[in-house]
């Protein structure tokens, strides 16, 4: 065995995959490459933009430094408004999401039609981005934080409703049956048998969604729905890059802190 030649009587060919498996793998791989290449080509991307991109980026970086600290007085209020939009939007969601979750959970929905309606609301809510919801609510309520709050709430309903509905479907049926057998009304069964079991999940997802919503609220101003986004958009359009960099720093700070707070609270309650 130390001589390095083939061993008589043993096969010297071994393939990890059969030819058919190999073919299938290649087809998948080439298919993915083809789709990607085709997409890029079809988009008609002006590649020459890349030639001076590094110059542009460097130029941008130079203009951003140092940030215009004095502008902080201007953005302090919008920054707080951003947090308010996220928080109030989440509170609104909290009250809307869980009746819908009860509709969308198989074991608590009254009948198939209500189940379908519940599911449809959740899917529709999640399919439309917060910013798109904001476009709609700005048209309804006019520019300002009210549109932002509703946009945040409408997008979050799908997210929280889905997670809560899943939690409801996984509850322990024992206590529910026990309460139902006492002849309690349907509402009472839900409130006493089901709700306590899913409350931790509801609190957990609410806090989790809140920190996602902080991040979402930072851009609502781009379509006029309040928050820091309005100032950010204005400064970008005026090429006031030292103001932009200050706002980016502030957003970074707020998002990181809210993420930390959210993680901490969730760890405490679960």
């Amino acid at each position: 065995m130390t001589d390095g030649t083939a061993e008589a009587g043993y096969p010297d060919i071994w393939r990890r995959f059969t030819p058919r498996q190999t073919l299938v793998r290649y087809v998948w791989f080439l298919g993915a490459v083809f789709v990607a290449v085709w997409s890029v080509r079809h988009l008609d991307i002006p590649w020459f933009y890349f030639l001076d991109a590094h110059v542009q980026a460097a130029d941008l970086a130079v203009r951003m430094i140092p940030p215009d600290w004095s502008y902080f007085d201007v953005i302090a209020r919008p920054l707080i408004e951003t947090i308010h939009i996220a928080t109030l939007g989440t509170i609104v969601t909290f009250f809307i999401a869980f009746p819908i979750a009860f509709l969308a959970a198989r074991n608590t929905t009254p009948n198939r039609l209500t189940w379908f309606i519940g599911r449809f609301i959740l899917v529709a809510s999640r399919s439309v981005n917060t910013v798109v919801w904001a476009l709609l609510f700005v048209a309804i309520f006019g520019p300002g934080p009210v549109a932002g709050i509703w946009a945040v709430a409408f997008r979050s309903i799908g997210f929280m409703g889905k997670l809560i509905a899943e939690a409801i479907e996984e509850i322990d049926e024992g206590p529910v049956e026990a309460i139902a057998s006492t002849g309690a009304s349907r509402l009472k069964v839900l409130l006493v048998g089901v709700l306590p079991q899913v409350l931790p999940v509801i609190y957990g997802t609410t806090i989790y969604r809140w920190d996602i919503n902080i991040r979402e609220s930072t851009v609502l101003g781009f379509v006029g729905a309040g928050g820091i986004g309005i100032q950010l958009y204005a400064s970008i359009n005026q090429f006031a890059w030292d103001e932009v960099s200050l706002m980016l720093l502030a957003i970074f700070g707020v998002v990181v802190i809210s993420e930390y707070v959210s993680a901490m609270v969730r760890q405490k309650i679960t």
């Binding site: 002006p46 933009y49 991109a53 542009q56 980026a57 941008l60 910013v131 991040r215 979402e216 930072t218 851009v219 781009f222 950010l232 958009y233 970008i236 980016l248 957003i251 970074f252 998002v255 990181v256």
Partner: peptide, 17 residues
């Protein structure tokens, strides 16, 4: 991860049109 896609998008729009 901190910055929303739309913020990144608008910066790229400023650089690449």
């Amino acid at each position: 991860r901190t910055f929303h896609e739309v913020i990144i998008a608008i910066l790229f729009v400023k650089i690449f049109g």
